[in-house]
Simulated assay, not measured.
Amino acid sequence: MAKTQLNVRVDEGTARTARERALARGMSVNRYIEELVRQDAGEVGRTFVEAAADFMEQYENVFAEEFGAEREGRR
């Protein structure tokens, strides 16, 4: 995907916090901001929900065998 430069002005405290949080996560400030915007746009959440739904569909029988009877009070 092509990159576009976006210039943003923030106060020094916000800039410092962004740098610290990016460093703590082992990523650039640029990547950190990208991640925040994606999260806010819901892409990360949507991807997680889709992956979780796929997982549950694949392993539904395993979970039902392991936990189904216990939930229904049969164990």
Rank of each mutant, 00 (worst) to 15 (best):
D54E: 07
R31Y: 11
R46M: 09
L36P: 02
E43G: 03
E65I: 10
D11A: 05
F63L: 13
E34Q: 15
E43T: 01
N30T: 15
A69F: 09
R31I: 04
A15V: 05
G68Q: 06
A52W: 00
G42H: 00
R9N: 11
R9P: 01
N61Y: 06
Y32N: 09
G68F: 12
R38W: 02
F55C: 06
E60G: 00
E20T: 07
K3F: 12
G26Q: 09
A69T: 13
E60F: 01
E43D: 08
A53K: 15
R16Q: 11
G73V: 04
E66F: 08
A51K: 06
R25K: 15
D11I: 04
Q39P: 02
R38G: 02
E65S: 07
A53I: 13
R46W: 06
G73A: 03
G42S: 08
Y59C: 08
V37Q: 07
L23F: 09
N7I: 09
N61H: 05
E20N: 09
E20I: 06
E43Y: 11
E57Q: 10
N61L: 08
A51C: 02
T14D: 00
A53P: 03
Q5M: 14
L6V: 11
Y32M: 09
E43M: 10
E57C: 07
A18F: 02
T47M: 00
V49N: 09
A64S: 12
E12C: 04
